[in-house]
Design a protein around this nucleic acid. Structure first.
Lengths: 139, 139
DNA sequence: GCTAACATTGCAATAGCATTGCATCGTCAT
DNA sequence: ATGACGATGCAATGCTATTGCAATGTTAGC
């Protein structure tokens, strides 16, 4: 239902415009994290910059989080947690498959506590694991 | 001693040219990981592309490793481990300071074992922690 | 219904990093 | 010497991210 999507936007204090409804709808259908390019290709003919800003807005409001998987292109995925703009503690692991080149959130695999050297203070953590995903795993 | 630097190159099967000696010497003097830009600025007047390729060569041969800290610019730092080109298992944590914007290797802080979901297979891991480094920590 | 204020969108343009092609030059072995 | 090969330097390009600005839509007040 469109109503559901609309509600999710409003809950995050995002003005539910047509474009945003479409983007959010598209994002919910994704299995893997997608780049701006993927989004542009996946959606109908839309303006790249608008999509870019839509993602930025979503990120600021805590609806999606961005992932730097080392491919050079930032990927985006919906937040599972109750993030808000300030607290993006997506402390789950991200997995990049070297075979299918997709980036997945592993929401149930959390980043463990790391004890840093004296006087280093953690604010964010970002763990990318690269390898072979379950789908590409042969045998 | 230049001899020492030269030996380190030869040990890694890298032809010790003047440029490479300079770059490696410069790298050893760094406290933090540096970007191509930093390298270019820090060295005398040198060609950016040559520096780029020098770093690539060093990376291939296992002398340095590259770090994606999310700033958009790839950073490089000397490997501490006995890496070779194939096995870049720099399983230590990298720390990005939000205050001084520097990226540090924490060679003694290793990435712990992570148990992934079934049929996911790890090949590399990359953990970036962002926060405040020991130098910038006030108090 | 009209209008002013504001948010959103779309186009153009730009910045910055990464990367390749090609020509030149140096080095080393025969 | 010369030929092969690696290294260097310049030019050019691709790609992602990002901003400026104008046009457009949307909302609230009258």
């Amino acid at each position: 239902m469109t109503k559901d999507i609309e509600h999710r936007l409003k809950n995050k204090d995002i003005n539910p415009t047509a474009m945003r409804l479409l983007v959010l709808d598209f994002l919910t259908k994704q299995v893997a994290a997608i780049s701006l390019n993927d989004l542009e290709k996946g959606m109908g003919p839309s303006d790249r910059i608008t999509l870019y800003r839509t993602l930025k807005t979503f990120e600021e409001k805590g609806l999606v989080h961005s992932i730097e998987d080392g491919t050079g292109a930032t990927k985006y995925a919906l937040c599972e947690d109750n993030c808000d703009g300030d607290h993006h503690h997506d402390l789950h692991v991200h997995f990049y498959c070297n075979t299918c080149k997709e980036t997945f959130c592993l929401p149930n695999t959390k980043i463990p506590e790391i004890s840093l050297p004296k006087r280093f203070q953690t604010e964010e953590m970002n763990l990318i694991i690269k390898g072979i995903c379950d789908q590409c795993h042969s045998g």
